[in-house]
Structures are given as structure tokens and as C-alpha cells.
């Protein structure tokens, strides 16, 4: 029994352990990065799913921006008013109430309303549409092709391809903006959650052509715009647009639209 050997071994390992402990302790103090404690608190209040809807890299990025004063306290679209209030408390600022917005796909040209120009068996990726013959197999070239890239990027499982066209579940949508960024045709836009009516068409084709392409396309006849009491509808780019700041949800536009382009939201 070589006791000296045992003692040396114990001593050396203990010494190394002690040295490392002290070294790290000192290093932690010397290399300490000052973090504003408000940032930690805000980070705790934010939902924490790092969707990027605020425009900052993750929830920690948003917290840092809020503390730095770059972002307003209601920057988080997912957390909505409740989180904005809490963040406002931490920052000592009153939070403004933001209207809840949801994404909406301005197209309803699914398999039942449009037809296929040809049968496509290539990659199901919306970003590749520019390279596909005739901009995609669907008869309408301005609408949703239904390949579903938007469904892949949604962190909240709020958008799905139903009947060949993308459809947003407005209960689940948190307006983070990821689907909007990825749609190559810009078909998705944010509208208020409680908007009652929406134009589900983005057709840029002239009237007769649009009628051939889809059974529910907007032909830019202008009936909706003429009959809107709040003058909230304009016809641009050969289809109708509703201005939700003016819209009073009366429903006249939907009644007057012969093409069933304006739908109930």
C-alpha cells in the first residue's frame, strides 16, 4: 500500500479542481458582461418561441431592442396586448393597444375553381415557381399554386393547403409574418382579426381572361367599389382592394359581387 502515491493522487486532483474552480470564478467576474436586468425580466414575459415576428432575432433580440429603446413595448405580435402591458410595466411605459391582425391569403382558386394547364410532377416548392413552365400548372398565373412552402415556415401550424389553396386558420395565426415573406406572389397580407369580409383574389388578368382562369376570380367590374357606403374599396391591378381603416363591415360588397370573389372572413 503506497500511501504516498494515494496522497499525491488525491492532492493533485483536488488541487486541479480547486484551481479550475477559482480560475473560473475569477474569470466569470472579470469577464462579466453587464446585462440590464430589465432585459431578463422582459425576456421572461415574452412568449419565448423565437418566431421573429417582431423583426428582431428571437425573443432575446426583441428584449434587447425594447430595452435599448429601438422597439416599442408592444413589439411582440404573438403576445398581443397582455404581453405588451406587462412589458410596459417593466419599462415604466403605458402600452398602446394594438389591433390584432391575422394573415389572409388573397386567393381561393383551389382545385374546384381552377383547372390545370398541365400535370406537374416536379418539386413542390413555391420558391421555384419562377422556373416552372408557364409559372405553374394552375390556370391562373397570379394565384396560389398550392405547393405549400408557406405551411412549412409557419411556426404556429396556422396555415394549411386546403383543397389546393393555402388557407389561414385565423385563430392560430399570430401575425409573425413568416408566410408573407415566403410567398413569391405576395398573396398573403395582414388584415384585422375581426375583419368580416375580404377580397379573396389577386388576379391581374383582364375580365374575360380572368373568368376563364378561375370561377371565382375578380373581374374588376367595380360593383363593390360603387356600392360601398364607406368608400373603402378601390380597384387596382385588375382586382378589388378593401381598406380596413375605412371598412365598416356592412357586407354590401359581398352581396353585389357576382363572382363570389369577396368572402366572409
Amino acid at each position: 500500500m503506497n500511501v504516498t502515491g494515494i496522497l499525491i493522487a488525491v492532492a493533485i486532483v483536488a488541487a486541479i479542481g480547486l484551481f479550475i474552480g477559482i480560475f473560473l470564478g475569477v474569470a466569470a467576474n472579470v469577464f462579466k458582461v453587464e446585462v440590464d436586468e430589465r432585459e431578463e425580466k422582459i425576456l421572461g414575459v415574452l412568449p419565448g418561441n423565437n418566431c421573429g415576428g417582431c423583426g428582431y432575432p428571437g425573443c432575446s433580440g426583441c428584449a434587447a431592442a425594447i430595452v435599448a429603446g429601438e422597439a416599442p413595448v408592444n413589439a411582440c405580435p404573438v403576445g398581443g396586448d397582455a404581453v405588451a402591458d406587462k412589458v410596459g410595466e417593466i419599462m415604466g411605459v403605458k402600452a398602446e393597444k394594438k389591433k390584432r391582425m391575422v394573415a389572409f391569403v388573397k386567393c381561393q382558386g383551389g382545385c374546384d375553381k381552377t383547372h390545370e394547364d398541365y400535370h406537374y410532377t416536379g418539386e413542390q416548392d413555391c420558391q421555384m415557381i419562377a422556373f416552372i413552365p408557364n409559372q405553374g400548372p394552375r390556370s391562373c398565373n397570379s394565384g396560389c399554386q398550392g405547393f405549400g412552402t408557406c405551411t412549412k415556415v409557419c411556426p404556429f401550424d396556422a396555415i394549411h393547403v386546403v383543397n389546393g389553396v393555402a388557407l389561414v386558420d385565423k385563430e392560430k395565426c399570430k401575425a409573425c409574418g413568416k408566410c408573407i415573406a415566403v410567398c413569391p406572389r405576395g398573396l398573403i397580407e395582414l388584415i384585422p382579426y375581426d375583419a368580416q369580409f375580404a377580397v379573396a383574389c389577386s388576379s391581374k388578368s383582364k375580365g374575360p381572361q380572368a373568368m376563364k382562369e378561375c370561377t371565382a376570380s375578380c373581374i374588376a367590374c367595380g360593383m363593390c367599389a360603387r356600392n360601398c357606403p364607406a368608400e373603402a374599396i378601390t380597384v387596382e391591378d385588375m382586382h378589388a382592394h378593401i381598406d380596413y381603416d375605412k371598412c365598416i363591415s356592412c357586407g354590401n360588397c359581398r352581396e353585389k359581387c357576382k363572382r363570389n370573389s369577396i368572402i366572409v372572413h
Binding site: L24, A27, A28, F31, V33
Partner: peptide, 11 residues
């Protein structure tokens, strides 16, 4: 590894 993380975070 711990030390490298601290060092990088600061400098």
C-alpha cells in the same frame, strides 16, 4: 469550454 465561452462573450 466554460472559459472560452466567457472570453468570447466579453471580447
Amino acid at each position: 469550454v466554460q472559459f472560452v465561452e466567457l472570453f468570447l462573450k466579453k471580447f
